[in-house]
Computed example of a mutant assay.
Amino acid sequence: MALALLRDGFKERSITQRTAVPGGTLYRLAIDHGITAPHGTVEGHRCHEAADTEPCDECSLADGRDQARKRARHRRSGSPAAAAGAARAPGSPWRTPRR
């Protein structure tokens, strides 16, 4: 069932939640059975990686977008104390100027 979901374009997370098949196993099984995810998706890129083939342009682009989203999410998830300026040392050039 997991391979049919992958072939039909479901996301890895959704497939894992529905079938309890982890991502690494999913892609190895897909390659063993000659099944690929749709091109232009992150899952398609992971199928290329599992098959040890050069990703197509569409899959490379999808993977790049996914990595950019993860980096942006990581940047936004900074600690609240640092965001409020509590972690700044007195006299630091990065201190908020007083008015």
Rank of each mutant, 00 (worst) to 15 (best):
R46N: 14
A86I: 09
Q17C: 13
V21N: 04
P90Q: 05
T16Q: 14
A72D: 09
Q17Y: 13
A87G: 09
L6G: 01
E12T: 15
K11G: 09
D57Y: 04
S92H: 07
G91C: 09
L29F: 11
S92P: 07
C59M: 00
E58I: 00
I15F: 08
A68L: 11
K70R: 15
H45A: 08
S14R: 11
A84E: 10
D66V: 04
A50T: 01
T36H: 09
A87P: 01
I35M: 13
R69S: 07
R13N: 14
R76T: 05
R75A: 12
I35Y: 08
A81H: 07
A37G: 05
P55V: 04
T16H: 12
D32S: 13
E54H: 08
R28M: 12
R88S: 11
T96I: 13
G44S: 03
C59W: 00
A2E: 01
G24K: 11
K11H: 12
H48K: 02
K70N: 09
A51H: 00
P22D: 04
A86V: 08
G40T: 07
S60P: 04
R18F: 07
L3S: 01
A62W: 01
R73Q: 15
P93H: 01
S14M: 08
A37M: 05
D66S: 14
D8R: 03
D8L: 03
A86H: 14
P80W: 10
E43T: 09
R28K: 15
R98F: 10
V42I: 08
D57E: 12
T36Q: 10
G85R: 01
D66C: 11
E49N: 06
A84K: 13
R99L: 13
L29M: 15
E12N: 14
A82Y: 09
L5N: 00
S60R: 07
